[in-house]
Simulated assay, not measured.
Amino acid sequence: MRDCIFTLPNGRFLVVPSNLIRTLEQYRQLQPSSKEQGGMLLGVFRADDEEQFSLENPPCIEVLSITEPCDQDHATRFRFVRQCEHHLNKMKKAAQMYKELVYIGEWHTHPEDNPSPSTIDLNSWQKAFKNKIAIVVIIGRVTNWWGLWMGDNIVQIKNLQ
């Protein structure tokens, strides 16, 4: 599997290493008893020094690390809420490895073949990412849904390959 490269609305790119895609997809809800799982996306915004980016003009984004679910998270068949200090500790540890690493978004699973954001997802992202740029991901049983949150707006983004 190759790294995934997604096109952003302004022609820039999101890059996600293949090993992180494999890790995300290991949490697919393939069994009727499988619970939603999720975590954080950590990475960097890449822009030329003189280049200004805004909500309407996001930079290139690279995912460098993710957090994975832990036992203290709240997970049911149709809901996931991060509650574990593990996610923050993983973020701090990853930040020591990558100087410019920041929290860039969220991922979670859905128990459907071809997922799309629910009203709960949209409301949650609205609260978490108001006036921010973020990557949001839903891992389905067959396909994944990737989106770019820009302030108050969500745009689905597609893999180039």
Score class of each variant (00 low, 15 high):
135 I>P: 04
76 T>A: 06
58 P>F: 10
92 K>A: 08
68 E>T: 15
71 D>F: 10
62 E>R: 02
77 R>Q: 10
107 W>T: 08
133 I>W: 00
132 K>R: 15
66 I>P: 01
58 P>L: 11
47 A>E: 08
107 W>C: 06
148 L>G: 01
129 F>I: 03
99 K>L: 12
99 K>I: 11
121 D>Y: 07
36 E>I: 00
121 D>P: 03
53 F>K: 05
92 K>G: 00
29 Q>N: 14
84 C>E: 13
126 Q>W: 10
85 E>H: 09
93 K>A: 15
98 Y>P: 00
88 L>R: 04
140 G>K: 08
84 C>N: 11
118 S>Q: 07
113 D>E: 14
39 G>L: 09
51 E>G: 00
84 C>R: 06
123 N>Y: 10
50 E>S: 11
28 R>V: 05
69 P>Y: 02
60 C>T: 09
82 R>H: 03
44 V>M: 12
75 A>N: 07
87 H>M: 11
120 I>A: 12
95 A>G: 05
136 V>T: 15
31 Q>C: 01
91 M>P: 01
58 P>K: 14
62 E>I: 05
131 N>T: 09
136 V>E: 04
34 S>V: 08
97 M>C: 09
40 M>E: 11
118 S>W: 11
148 L>N: 00
55 L>K: 10
102 V>E: 14
139 I>A: 02
69 P>N: 06
57 N>G: 04
134 A>H: 07
43 G>M: 06
74 H>P: 01
143 T>W: 08
31 Q>R: 13
124 S>Q: 10
48 D>R: 13
38 G>F: 14
102 V>G: 01
109 T>G: 05
134 A>E: 07
126 Q>S: 14
146 W>S: 00
100 E>N: 15
147 G>Q: 05
40 M>N: 13
87 H>Q: 10
136 V>G: 06
29 Q>A: 15
97 M>S: 12
108 H>Y: 01
131 N>A: 12
76 T>E: 14
108 H>C: 08
66 I>Q: 01
37 Q>W: 00
112 E>W: 05
62 E>D: 03
62 E>Q: 03
107 W>G: 04
43 G>L: 12
